[in-house]
Amino acid sequence: MADPPHITIDGVPQNCNGCHQIFHSNSPAGATLNYHQEIRLQHGLNNRCVNCHDSQNRERLTLRDGATVSFAETPQLCAQCHGTVFRDWERGTHGKTLGSWITNSDAQRRLSCTECHNPHAPRYEPYKLLSGPNTLRMGEQVASPTGGVRDEQSPLQRWLRGIDPKQRDHPITNGARP
């Protein structure tokens, strides 16, 4: 994520403060949003924008003690509530590490909280799964005249079809079923 983040309005990239320094945006609870309507805030008990976003400078995040951090320092912010997860993340037992398994290697990079979790709705969405195993698939998949697929090399399907085409000009069985 860019730090601070950008938003594109009418094809023009804008910083947060481009709007927020001009317009007053301290909506009361339950108010209908005019902007940022794409944001679905489903973060459990944490249901107010300014719990995390600094109310004065929208290009910073706010900690509970009033200090602000940049967007690149999100883990510090999340750690205030998710202490045990932060502890695990620091040790490397939560989250994802890319690049290298060698501790403290330059190539190693541990993803930060918001690279995996959407901070506004941190729960993982249900996931589409990839295809399952097909251990009987033995060769080229050929469309069968009776519908479905035919598998030229599968001994099971060859047996089901009866005569093996390779056996048809066989010198001894002469086309008879072996």
């Binding site: 490397g92 037992t93 939560h94 590490t97 690049g99 398994w101 501790t103 993803l111 995996c116």
Partner: peptide
Amino acid sequence: GRMPACVEICPTGARKFGNVLDPKSE
């Protein structure tokens, strides 16, 4: 020094890989 392919692709960080002789490894 690189990660196995299954570790790199895992979308949830469920897979962890490293050197057990290094006490600081994950």
